[in-house]
Lab assay of single mutants.
Amino acid sequence: MDEEYDVIVLGTGLTECILSGIMSVNGKKVLHMDRNPYYGGESSSITPLEELYKRFQLLEGPPESMGRGRDWNVDLIPKFLMANGQLVKMLLYTEVTRYLDFKVVEGSFVYKGGKIYKVPSTETEALASNLMGMFEKRRFRKFLVFVANFDENDPKTFEGVDPQTTSMRDVYRKFDLGQDVIDFTGHALALYRTDDYLDQPCLETVNRIKLYSESLARYGKSPYLYPLYGLGELPQGFARLSAIYGGTYMLNKPVDDIIMENGKVVGVKSEGEVARCKQLICDPSYIPDRVRKAGQVIRIICILSHPIKNTNDANSCQIIIPQNQVNRKSDIYVCMISYAHNVAAQGKYIAIASTTVETTDPEKEVEPALELLEPIDQKFVAISDLYEPIDDGCESQVFCSCSYDATTHFETTCNDIKDIYKRMAGTAFDFENMKRKQNDVFGEAEQ
């Protein structure tokens, strides 16, 4: 370990593993360490099931009705991949897709007046949907046509809207959309967690709705994908990429100290040895004095023996409960997957309800979601602090990732990755940087 590296990475969460992969592909010498004996950090999948019970201090362990412990891979952080989103792009560019198998999530649902409705995925579904009345549908269709044709580089498509100054509230007004449709559009399509976006320039919202539609167009059922064997497969896929390009991995490796000289990182000390480096990437748990708390998320993992009611017996789905429907500031989400994804025993389902904490009784906040899941065989409640770095790391060369937020997709995580890359490399992130180099010394032969 007593060696000189360009970059040392602490923690094998998804953000850290993707950055480690990119740095290795770009010719950097990388050492990647984790104090845990497993990959994934906060974003790991726990197996066998006995391990999950232990982690949540349920000492009696799983009953026999849960089947074989080894058949379970339970995500600690519930997220899906947008089919046309940035993480899929990263997987394709790096060819990490060859280590993973994905399934399309069967449906996306939205909560309205105590019931759940399928988010329409085709024009026919939209016309048949009970989510809105006849005239509302016509106006909504006009709005969707506007979004589909919108091109930020072609003012002819703006229809009198200025993407940089017109607020989204004004765009909704222009198409005369009612409150329910606005809730549905902002939260189930643009996937905002709160209503803060309404008074911001509309460009980002329009682009988010386009991303949803384009992702949906790829597979038809929903815009989301999920990897077989759980999300823990993602960091491992990128760790393989890093290793192929010469990255060194050490799990179960305690970090005793991060060594600084004149305010700059110069190395990491572990078990009496020092590895030197020019730059350091880590998750917040490794540098508690360089991060601040930015809120909390509650996630309740529920094991069920039945599909969720009114989802047409889907073996995977997402449910969004827009905040307006339950008098909150932030949406509540449910991600459900099952034995069909090799993450649970035969006939079992895993539904994870999550939201940003707003009160001193977080469990009560998630109740509307839990009511949709009854009866629940077993619950595991996790309340996590969200951390963000206190500075950009440019001076110390210590670059810290943000905690995983309450969103049900990876777009915010990818933004964090691109942002850290830019601060480390001094140049904007470009997907081309992730391409495997042809015929290089570490390149794998085609399968």
Rank of each mutant, 00 (worst) to 15 (best):
P62L: 08
G114H: 13
P78R: 08
R193I: 15
M336L: 06
K309N: 05
Y349M: 04
A239S: 05
P307H: 00
A275F: 11
L234R: 01
K264G: 15
H409N: 08
P37H: 02
S45T: 14
D331G: 07
D405N: 08
N207E: 15
I298N: 08
G393I: 15
A340V: 13
K379S: 04
N149V: 14
G186L: 10
D71G: 10
F429I: 06
K364E: 11
D195G: 06
G133F: 09
E273R: 04
E363A: 04
L144W: 10
V9M: 08
N252S: 10
G27E: 06
E374W: 14
I18T: 08
S222R: 01
F109D: 01
E123H: 13
D6G: 02
G133D: 05
E51G: 12
V110K: 11
Y229D: 02
V381A: 08
S222C: 10
C414I: 13
K210D: 12
T157P: 02
M250N: 14
D391C: 14
N310I: 00
G220I: 15
S270P: 03
T408A: 09
K210N: 03
K278T: 09
M33N: 14
D440R: 02
K422Y: 15
G347Q: 12
R218K: 12
Y117H: 12
D154Y: 04
I417S: 09
G426Y: 12
F410L: 10
R436D: 15
I301V: 11
V381W: 15
Y249N: 10
Y286C: 04
G40V: 02
Y172G: 14
K418I: 10
N433L: 15
E42N: 10
K156A: 14
R290G: 15
E388M: 03
V145L: 12
G263A: 07
C335L: 15
F135I: 07
S403A: 12
A294T: 06
Y53H: 08
S65T: 10
Y286V: 04
H187Q: 06
V343L: 02
R138Q: 08
L372W: 04
V441T: 11
I46T: 10
Y5H: 01
G27V: 03
D34N: 00
N36G: 14
Y349H: 09
L52P: 03
L304P: 02
S316C: 12
R292Y: 07
T165D: 12
Q57T: 02
K364S: 05
R299L: 02
L370Q: 11
P163Q: 14
T360L: 15
L76H: 11
R208F: 15
D154S: 14
Q447R: 12
V105A: 08
M434F: 12
S338A: 10
V441I: 08
E365A: 03
K210R: 09
P48T: 00
A239I: 15
Y421C: 10
S305G: 10
Y387R: 14
Q296R: 11
N130E: 13
R292G: 07
A126E: 02
A382V: 09
K137D: 13
I298E: 03
E365N: 03
H341P: 06
C302L: 13
G267V: 03
G246C: 09
S45W: 09
I287L: 06
S167W: 14
E273M: 03
K418S: 04
C400S: 11
R138W: 08
L91R: 00
K329G: 10
S65K: 12
Y39R: 08
Y245N: 13
V161T: 12
D257W: 08
E3G: 10
Y99P: 00
G21R: 04
D176N: 13
D71E: 07
L144P: 03
V334A: 05
K29G: 02
T427D: 13
L198R: 06
V255D: 15
I337G: 14
D75A: 05
V119C: 14
G114Y: 13
A314S: 07
L203I: 04
D6E: 05
I376V: 10
E365Y: 01
N310K: 01
E159N: 12
Y5R: 06
V110R: 08
G133R: 12
P37S: 08
N327M: 12
G393S: 07
E358K: 05
H409P: 07
T355A: 10
D430C: 11
D101Y: 07
Y99N: 00
R436L: 08
G113N: 03
S305I: 05
Y53S: 03
P235N: 15
P288K: 02
E60A: 05
G114D: 09
K309E: 10
D361A: 11
L81F: 02
N433H: 02
D313F: 01
I77L: 07
L231P: 01
T355N: 00
G443V: 07
P288W: 12
A345G: 14
V9T: 04
L228I: 00
G107A: 07
E446V: 03
G61V: 09
K293E: 09
E444R: 14
K435Q: 12
M90V: 06
S270W: 01
R68P: 06
Y117T: 01
S215T: 03
N149K: 00
Y117E: 03
E3Q: 01
V268A: 03
K115Q: 03
T124D: 08
G393E: 11
A345D: 01
G107S: 10
G232A: 08
L373T: 03
L370W: 09
L216F: 05
P120Q: 00
P254T: 02
R292Q: 10
A353F: 02
G247D: 12
S167R: 08
E261W: 15
S354I: 02
S20E: 14
L372N: 02
N130G: 13
E271H: 10
K379M: 04
K79R: 09
S121F: 08
K418P: 03
T427G: 04
V291S: 12
F399C: 01
A445D: 04
N26R: 03
V181A: 09
T408S: 07
E51D: 07
A369E: 09
I332D: 00
E363G: 10
N327T: 06
E271G: 10
A243L: 07
V110A: 09
G220N: 15
L189Q: 03
I209Y: 15
L177P: 02
A83S: 11
Y117P: 06
V88F: 13
L14K: 01
N415D: 10
D71I: 07
N342S: 10
E51Y: 14
T412Y: 01
G237D: 02
I376S: 01
K142M: 13
Q318D: 10
E261I: 12
G85D: 10
K418R: 10
A83N: 13
T408Q: 02
G186V: 00
Q296W: 08
K379L: 04
D361Y: 06
K348Q: 06
D283Y: 01
A188S: 05
K118M: 03
C394E: 02
T356N: 01
N84Y: 03
G247E: 02
A243G: 06
L189M: 08
V88S: 15
D361G: 06
V74D: 08
N312L: 14
D377N: 11
D289G: 10
G347R: 04
H32S: 05
V25E: 12
K89C: 15
F399I: 03
I77T: 07
K379G: 07
Q346G: 05
G347Y: 15
V381R: 00
I244D: 15
P78S: 13
Y117N: 01
L144R: 07
F380V: 13
R218S: 14
P48I: 08
R240T: 03
L58Y: 07
L373M: 06
Y111D: 05
R98H: 11
M336V: 09
T124S: 07
D440P: 08
Y53W: 03
P223A: 10
D199C: 15
Q438E: 15
S285I: 05
G220A: 06
G247R: 01
E358W: 10
N149D: 09
G246D: 15
I417F: 10
Y192S: 07
E159Y: 07
D430Y: 00
P48R: 03
A128V: 11
Y404F: 11
S242I: 01
L280S: 00
E444N: 00
Q164K: 00
L87Q: 02
V334F: 03
C302F: 05
N310S: 08
K174E: 08
F431E: 09
P368S: 09
P288L: 08
Y38D: 00
D162S: 14
I287S: 11
L241V: 11
